[in-house]
């Protein structure tokens, strides 16, 4: 068991190492570098040399990779090109804002998804299922920017209930942020909830069709007791992994949602740093977003492992 956990964690680190290599090599082989972008037309001769020396670009690529990686592990990503300030300081408030957004969406989304998923599975092909499933298909297939735009149009512009666009400084306090994040949270939670509800539904349906549930029905176990005691614990276990993947997948979607609502989070920083060709920041973002993805997956794997006694022995025998 312990061996297995260590192995998973090691695999996560190997993945992150490859990610760092990919981002480094990727930004290296693409045409142009930090200095040519920064200096634009003046990028030749003396000035270019000086810039290379200042940013340390005159040493071989592998040396730069090693020093960059060693610093990155300690949380130092160097200086951003556009703001002329440490990337660490740029990232801090952004990460906090994005975390607020994501965790609000998760706390609202998971309970709703569970209820919807269970309801649709238990009333399969009846009216509640057909109605809810139709809505979830719409919610999960429509692009984030469309649902966000429609939310702004209907709730902020036509009904005038909530502010449509977040106009706050990056380092705003939590309570000032609160009324501004309601719409972005709804936009994100909608897609996430729809995805999770569908997975919970199919998982519950699978368990309901299994032999031991049929046996419980034949034995005369009361319906709701059977659902809560025998079906749900087994149905929700495989859902953990899927929920983790959905959250991780949302990292990409959050970028678009944050841009639509002008929300000062990591997603908007992605767009800003790419528009400014701020490669050091892009590298730092890639590593951070990949670490979030890897750790969410790792956490889900470990949780499934802990919660499923059968899986433990199976994996060790392998």
């Amino acid at each position: 068991m312990l061996f297995l956990i260590i192995k998973r964690i090691l695999l996560g680190f190997i993945t992150l190492f490859i990610v760092s290599l990919i981002t480094f090599v990727g930004t290296e082989i693409l045409p142009g570098d930090a200095c040519t972008t920064y200096l634009e037309r003046q990028a030749f001769g003396e000035q270019l040399e000086a810039c290379y020396r200042r940013l340390g670009l005159n040493v071989p690529a592998y040396e730069r990779y090693v020093s960059w990686a060693v610093n990155a592990i300690q949380g130092d990503f160097g200086y951003s090109l556009s703001g002329e300030m440490p990337i660490k300081e740029v990232l801090g408030p952004r990460i906090k804002n994005s975390l607020v957004l994501a965790s609000a969406a998760i706390f609202i989304g998971i309970p709703i998804a569970l209820i919807l998923g269970i309801v649709t599975a238990l009333w399969r092909d009846k009216l509640p299922d057909v109605a809810i499933s139709t809505v979830t298909i719409f919610a999960m297939t429509i692009p984030e920017f469309i649902s966000a735009t429609l939310l702004i149009l209907i709730i902020a512009i036509w009904l005038e209930w909530l502010p449509g666009i977040v106009i706050v400084p990056t380092d705003v306090s939590f309570f000032e942020l609160l009324p501004n994040i309601i719409l972005p949270v709804i936009a994100i939670a909608m897609i996430m909830t729809a995805h999770m509800a569908r997975m919970v539904r199919s998982s519950v349906i699978q368990v309901m069709a299994s032999e031991y549930v049929q046996m419980a029905i034949l034995k005369g176990v009361p319906y709701w007791k059977m659902v809560f005691k025998h079906v749900l614990p087994n149905a929700l276990l495989p859902a953990i992994n899927v929920v983790a993947l959905t959250i991780a997948w949302l990292l990409g979607g959050v970028v678009v949602t944050e841009v639509v609502f002008n929300y000062p989070g990591l997603g908007r920083l992605v767009i800003e740093s790419i528009s400014n060709r701020d490669l050091p920041t892009v590298q730092a973002l890639a590593i951070i977003l990949a670490s979030i993805y890897v750790s969410i997956n790792l956490l889900a794997d470990l949780m499934t492992l802990m919660l499923n006694p059968r899986l433990k022995t199976l994996q060790i025998r392998k």
Binding site: I18, V256, V282, Y293
Partner: peptide, 23 residues
Amino acid sequence: MRIVDAFLSIPWILAMLLIVSLL
């Protein structure tokens, strides 16, 4: 598979934006 995993963990939008903005 390790390399595929690594690519999967980079948000596609970051990678696509970078490629498109440079190329």
